[in-house]
Amino acid sequence: MLSGISKLLGSFLKFIYDFMVQAFPNEPESISFFALSIIIATVIIRVAVLPVNISMMKNQKKMAELQPEIEKLQRKYKNDPQTLAVKQQKLYKEANYNIFAGCLPMIIQMVVLIAFYRVFLEPAKYAFTDKAFFESINKNFFYLKNLEFKDTTMILPAMAGITTFITSYLSSKNPANQGNQQANSMMKSMTIMMPLLIFWMSRNFQAGLALYWVVGNIVSIIQQLITNAIIAKDVSEEVK
């Protein structure tokens, strides 16, 4: 399955690169068509999975609607955690609410990350099948001479970790999650662990892969800010 996803992503990356070469006569000195292809492909991929994010947003809105009932259960069974858990699960089931739906976008990101890792690991197999051609093209990105190698300056890995933290932090501040102990606990763990994991991984990844993650996170941050604003508005209307 991952091999198929890698081939699809590799072909898509090559398609964007070929399009840019044909569309623009001159390649910018500071940023290569290869780097721009990664950025454009990342934005398009994130937009493509937008329906998943919309589904997650609907799930969060449903959680906001259920919050008053959950608080009633928490007060009623505050001394009986087992019964509280059973009652909450029953409420979620009746409302068709999936408490783990918020993790789906992150899972999809990780699958794409692994698939892209395979593309950069074997570009001649998944994207630029002409090895000589791939070695001849520019792969610079501002301060980096070649995105095919690790970023020894640690700038991109640090940005990957920081933007991952911001994404997780904004998710934890979603009004729909306030008062949801299970969701809050999960979000707190992700806010701490994911940035550290991504930073550690990015130190050993090709810089192109780290660039993909940073750009993807920036798109996710924008989406999360919009989502939080929409949820906050709906919650305030419910209160009124």
Rank of each mutant, 00 (worst) to 15 (best):
V47C: 12
M154P: 02
A115N: 11
N180R: 12
E122K: 15
A160I: 11
A158E: 03
F33T: 12
I166F: 08
N98P: 04
N79L: 04
L9N: 02
I155K: 07
P105S: 03
S3G: 12
A41C: 13
I226Y: 07
L8N: 03
L209Q: 06
I107L: 13
K240E: 08
T163F: 06
G208W: 05
Q74W: 06
I45D: 02
Q88N: 05
K188I: 03
I166R: 01
K72C: 09
K76D: 00
L170D: 01
M186D: 00
S185P: 12
L121R: 13
N59R: 09
K14R: 15
M194H: 14
I166M: 08
S37V: 09
I221N: 08
M187P: 04
F141L: 06
S37W: 00
E237D: 04
M190G: 10
S6G: 06
T167I: 02
L113I: 08
A115D: 11
C103V: 14
L197V: 15
P105H: 04
Q223V: 12
D130W: 05
V235A: 02
R118F: 15
P157V: 08
Y169V: 11
S172L: 12
I192R: 15
S11F: 12
K240L: 06
I114E: 08
Y17P: 04
I114T: 14
A158W: 11
S3Q: 13
M56E: 01
D234Y: 09
S236F: 10
A127M: 04
Q22N: 02
S220F: 07
K90V: 10
D80K: 07
P195E: 15
E65D: 11
I114F: 14
F199P: 01
I155G: 01
S202I: 00
T42L: 03
Q60G: 01
L9P: 05
A132F: 09
M56G: 06
V111E: 08
N98W: 14
A207R: 00
G179M: 07
I221L: 00
F15H: 12
A132Q: 06
K233S: 13
T42D: 08
E27G: 12
F149H: 11
I137K: 04
F142R: 02
P51I: 05
K78F: 14
S202L: 04
F19T: 02
N26P: 03
L211T: 06
Y117P: 07
Q223L: 10
A183P: 00
K139D: 10
K188L: 08
W213Y: 09
V235C: 01
T83Q: 14
Y169Q: 13
V86E: 11
P195D: 15
T42A: 10
W200H: 06
Y92Q: 04
Y169M: 07
I162M: 00
R203L: 05
A160C: 09
F134L: 09
S37E: 02
S3D: 13
M193E: 03
A229C: 06
K173L: 02
E122W: 13
F128S: 07
K93G: 00
